[in-house]
């Protein structure tokens, strides 16, 4: 069992699936996250290395301040690999020199758990404040998108509040 930021990730689940335990991370974001941390598709939580776990925790703690992505350009036909005797430090330095800034980071604005919930609350409060129909329906605890209310509408009664989640 692994705790990351107070969330329990089940040992036997695939990492990609288990990441969706976080509020605010769905399948797509989990896939992106795995790609970023170099976690392969069939890797289970118990197979994650300690480095990967700390990396995951540090990334999720503050996605906006994470180190930017780097990309290696494709080698040209004339490229000759460095000799085998090159030291690992040398290779690392060369990789850093050759890599270029990657595409814009889509995970930069990632919000999870309480932060994501706060955004939802703010959006509902905004709709209520400007007096729109959606905000009014939230205040009444009724469905927002034209569903029937003669019976049921139970999900709406449970969830649609001006201050959601209690």
């Amino acid at each position: 069992m692994v705790h990351v930021l107070g969330v329990l990730l089940p040992d036997l689940q695939y990492a990609r699936q288990a990441l969706t335990t976080f509020y605010g991370i769905g399948n797509k974001t989990a896939h992106r996250l795995c790609a970023r941390l170099q976690v392969h598709d069939r890797q289970k939580i118990r197979d994650l290395t300690p480095t990967q776990i700390t990396e995951l925790a540090s990334f999720l703690a503050s996605p906006s301040t994470a180190s930017p992505l780097r990309r290696m350009p494709l080698a040209s036909f004339k490229y000759k690999p460095p000799p085998v005797s090159t030291s690992i430090e040398d290779i690392r330095r060369r990789v850093l020199e050759d890599s270029v800034p990657g595409p814009p980071d889509t995970l930069k604005g990632l919000k999870i758990e309480s932060e994501a919930k706060r955004v939802v609350k703010e959006n509902i409060a905004h709709l209520r404040m400007i007096g729109s129909y959606v905000g009014k329906r939230h205040a009444m605890g009724l469905p927002v998108r034209g569903q029937n209310t003669q019976s049921n509408a139970k999900t709406a009664r449970k969830l649609n509040r001006v201050t959601r989640f209690g």
Binding site: H126, I130, S132, Y133, V134
Partner: peptide, 15 residues
């Protein structure tokens, strides 16, 4: 109409 209503539809505010 106020600043916050921008992007919404007029009908949203006439119940």
């Amino acid at each position: 109409v106020t600043q916050d209503m921008i992007g919404h539809k007029l009908g949203e505010f006439a119940h």
